[in-house]
Simulated assay, not measured.
Amino acid sequence: MSADETAQGGQVKSAVRTVELLEYFAGRPGMHSLADVQQAVGYPKSSLYMLLRTLTDLGWVETDATGTRYGIGVRALLVGTSYIDGDEVVSAARTTLDRLSDDTTETIHLARLDGPNVVYLATRQSQHYLRPFTRVGRRLPAHSTSLGKAILATHTDEQVRKLLPETLRPLTEHTITDIDELIEDLHAIREQGYAVDREENTLGLRCFGVAIPYRTPARDAISCSVPVARLTPGHEQMIKDALQDARDRLTLATRHL
């Protein structure tokens, strides 16, 4: 392998570019022109075109009818589904998620920390007409979600500062954007045993989350999301109790992992 084929740290440049390109498409649904992709990733146009053509032939990238616009391909879906199907935590959590959905009648999520974000691994839709919609595979900033904050609270303050950027992106007017304020919130979460997203990710929606402690620090959490318009003090307490009961059952179900 020639020196120019190897990126810094011993990484293979072509492999790094392939992954970066797939992540670009994964984070930007729809079709994109070669010029737009080239501007975003910064690769030489000739190299980018050859890489796109190879990925298209292999099914990882698709083109439109004109052959000039590109998007994520079906092969990525197959690999993503394989990850979910083979994950032991997702498998162990199915019964608990079903029960939590029945008990609360609200939207339930299982998510995993991925860098400064959380990625949704499983979801159960609310039984109500007014309900949030979240798909498996969605990625959101950890600092703006009850799922993410529940997981971050199992980390030390130093670990949190290393995981998150200094400037936290606001998703709503209620999002905590100051890292010191977030760490104060994490201290409270450790004391009370659950996290609350107070319309920090989506206006009109409050979410409650607990981490699954099968490893320390945690990497997974479950949450319950409910529209503020439907949230009464009694319903809120029932959700908190149900989540903590679900955490206890998942702790037993994942103790072998």
Rank of each mutant, 00 (worst) to 15 (best):
L100Q: 04
L140P: 00
G115C: 07
Q125P: 07
H109E: 13
T107E: 08
P132Y: 01
R131E: 08
L121F: 14
P132M: 09
R131P: 04
P116F: 05
R135Y: 11
T96G: 00
T104S: 12
V119K: 07
A92N: 11
L113S: 04
L110F: 06
A122W: 02
G137R: 01
L100V: 06
S126A: 13
Q125W: 13
Y129G: 07
S126Q: 01
N117Q: 13
T134H: 09
Q127M: 09
V118K: 00
T104E: 04
R139Y: 07
T96Q: 04
P132R: 07
L140G: 02
R99T: 15
F133P: 01
F133I: 06
N117V: 03
H109D: 05
L97G: 03
D114N: 14
T96E: 04
Y129H: 11
V118D: 03
L121R: 05
P116E: 06
T105Y: 07
R112H: 13
H109A: 13
Y120A: 08
V136Q: 09
N117C: 10
Y120S: 08
T104C: 11
R124S: 07
A122T: 04
V118E: 01
F133S: 10
D102H: 08
A111F: 02
E106H: 12
S91T: 14
D114Q: 12
R139Q: 10
S101E: 12
Q125D: 08
L110S: 00
P132L: 09
E106K: 02
E106P: 00
R124A: 11
L130V: 15
R139L: 09
L100H: 04
S126G: 06
R124D: 04
R112N: 06
T96H: 00
R131M: 08
L113Y: 03
Y129L: 08
A93N: 04
T134E: 05
L100A: 03
L110H: 00
P132C: 07
R138C: 09
R94M: 09
F133N: 09
T107P: 02
T95P: 01
L97V: 03
T95L: 09
R131H: 10
A122D: 15
Y120T: 15
D98R: 13
T123I: 05
P132Q: 10
L121G: 02
H109V: 04
T96P: 00
R138K: 11
V136F: 06
Y129S: 06
Q125C: 09
D103W: 00
R135I: 07
V136W: 05
T95V: 12
A111G: 13
L100T: 01
L100S: 04
D98N: 15
V136P: 02
T105V: 14
A122R: 05
A111S: 15
F133M: 08
S91L: 11
R112Y: 09
A92P: 04
D114E: 15
S101Q: 13
T107I: 05
T96A: 11
Y129P: 05
T123W: 00
L97S: 06
D98G: 11
F133C: 06
T107F: 06
